[in-house]
Computed example of a mutant assay.
Amino acid sequence: MSWDRWWLFVVTVFLISGTPGPNMLHVMTRSVRYGFGRSVWAMAGCMTAVLIALAASAAGVGALLLASPRLFDVLRYAGAAYLAWLGIKAWRGAGKGAAGMDPDVPVTPGVSTFALYRDALFTGLSNPKLILFAAALFPQFISQKSGWAPQFAILVATFVAIETGWYVAYAAGGRRLSGWLSDGRRQRAFDRGTGALFFMFGAGLIAARTA
């Protein structure tokens, strides 16, 4: 794999990862509600889901999903249901919780680190198209003239570094928002907007196809 090809991968992943999606939205809202420090557990959960998807694509699960539309549909509808549940949870909890606290004041935990990790993991795993995305993207940057495994390892490490950087950026932005959300009306609007976005992500999964 040449340096030019690697840099093209870096730019491509940087732009794709930075696009708002369920993972980034989840990390940001965890930072708003529970603080930047505790949002690290949400980052870890989302990243675990990404690594599982990358490993699955390398193991040929992407090809299996393409060959088995019914299996893909099962995963797709399950993921959409989970995202819809997150939307309902955010909408019903609008205006409640710690989102409006001053960012310089320690936030009462309110939820276990395991729950933060688990919820983020399920959020990340809710999108089976990530496996198809990885299966389609990575081979484009792997040279047939060199060993496949070392190149794949480099691309995965690069992807993880860029994805983590965006998690941190979204979490930092979320923590800054917490001061602005000290107003109850703003907090309710933010929570309901978050719920609506999760519903939209779920609707996007329903409309998704393997092709």
Rank of each mutant, 00 (worst) to 15 (best):
M1L: 01
W3L: 14
W3G: 01
W6K: 02
W7S: 11
L8A: 14
V11D: 02
V11H: 00
T12M: 14
T12G: 08
V13G: 08
I16L: 14
I16A: 14
S17C: 12
S17D: 12
P22E: 03
M24Y: 02
M28F: 07
T29R: 13
S31L: 05
R33M: 15
Y34W: 04
G35T: 03
F36A: 07
R38L: 13
R38G: 08
V40P: 04
V40T: 12
M43F: 08
M43K: 07
C46K: 04
C46V: 12
V50L: 15
I52K: 00
L54E: 04
V61D: 06
G62P: 03
A63E: 14
L65E: 11
L66E: 13
A67F: 01
R70W: 13
L71P: 04
F72K: 00
Y77N: 05
A78Y: 06
A80W: 11
A84E: 03
G87Q: 00
I88T: 05
K89I: 00
A90R: 10
A90P: 04
W91G: 12
W91R: 01
R92Y: 08
R92L: 10
G93K: 03
G95F: 03
G95Q: 08
G100F: 04
G100Q: 05
D102A: 09
P103N: 08
P106Q: 07
P106G: 08
P106C: 07
T108P: 10
P109T: 09
P109M: 01
V111M: 14
S112V: 09
F114M: 10
R118T: 07
D119H: 05
D119S: 15
A120H: 12
F122L: 15
F122M: 15
T123L: 00
T123C: 15
P128S: 06
L130V: 14
I131S: 01
I131T: 15
L132E: 04
F133E: 00
A134E: 00
A134P: 02
L137Y: 08
F138V: 11
P139K: 00
F141G: 05
F141N: 06
F141E: 09
S143M: 09
K145Y: 10
S146G: 01
S146L: 15
S146I: 11
W148P: 00
A149C: 01
P150D: 08
Q151G: 12
A153F: 06
I154P: 05
A157G: 13
I162P: 05
G165A: 01
Y167M: 12
Y170Q: 08
A172I: 12
G174Y: 06
L177K: 06
L177F: 13
S178C: 04
G179V: 00
G179N: 07
W180L: 13
S182F: 05
G184F: 02
G184K: 14
R185L: 12
R186E: 02
Q187D: 06
R188M: 11
A189N: 05
A189C: 07
A189D: 05
F190D: 13
G195Y: 09
G195M: 04
A196R: 10
L197W: 09
F198R: 00
F199V: 15
M200G: 07
F201V: 09
G202Y: 00
G202M: 07
A203F: 14
G204R: 09
A207D: 10
T210F: 06
